[in-house]
């Protein structure tokens, strides 16, 4: 089993907010890789992170950048943009990770990948720029995770479906 857990966060019924979920959806059938899809609930995310040796968290961002822009952060040492996705009545991802730091329960390393969204309206489906970014992030993760001793079976075709 690859030591890295991939966690996609978001709400697939709110347009581009489903970007992180979509990346995780494309990776979840890869053998030997632990992939979680979460809605961003603070308690669930912190509980999940406690079980990870290392983790990569992917979520939609709303920072004003060009839609589809991908940003990577070392989540343990860099401040995250506060305008990441945040589910109803919950705290945002940045706040959840800040709580994890206070409790000292975060995995190390912990990477955050943000995908800039443009449409967060009700309804399923990603906008074209975000769909492209989801493909890029998925490919990048696969190649990076392969170098960590993770071997994707030849028969798998991870990039042919959306979550």
């Amino acid at each position: 089993m690859n030591p890295t857990t991939v966690i996609g966060i978001g709400n697939p019924y709110r347009g581009d907010d489903g970007a992180g979920i979509a990346v995780a959806g494309r990776l979840k059938h890869e053998q030997g890789l632990r992939v979680l899809q979460l809605d961003g609930d603070t308690a669930s995310l912190l509980e999940a992170l406690q079980t990870c040796e290392r983790a990569i968290v992917i979520d939609a961002m709303c920072s004003g950048a060009m839609p589809g822009t991908v940003r990577r952060y070392n989540a343990l040492h860099e401040p995250l943009p506060t305008k990441t996705q945040a589910s109803t009545h919950g705290l945002g991802l940045a706040e959840a990770l800040a709580l994890g730091k206070v409790f000292n329960t975060l995995p190390d390393p912990l990477e955050f990948i943000g995908i800039e969204g443009s449409c967060f309206e009700h309804g399923a489906g990603l906008s074209p720029a975000v769909l492209d970014a989801v493909g890029t992030v998925t490919s990048d993760l696969l190649s990076r995770l392969l170098t960590q001793g993770f071997h994707r079976p030849e028969s798998a075709s991870p990039c042919t479906s959306t979550a």
């Binding site: 603070t42 509980e47 706040e95 709580l99 206070v102 409790f103």
Partner: peptide, 25 residues
């Protein structure tokens, strides 16, 4: 200011809240 600041001084209280949330979930 927020729950993160509160957690620094009252970690057990905030942890208790997270446990309750998870039990309900």
């Amino acid at each position: 200011h927020d729950a993160i600041e509160a957690a620094k001084d009252h970690p057990e209280v905030v942890r208790r809240g997270l446990r309750l949330k998870q039990a309900g979930n």
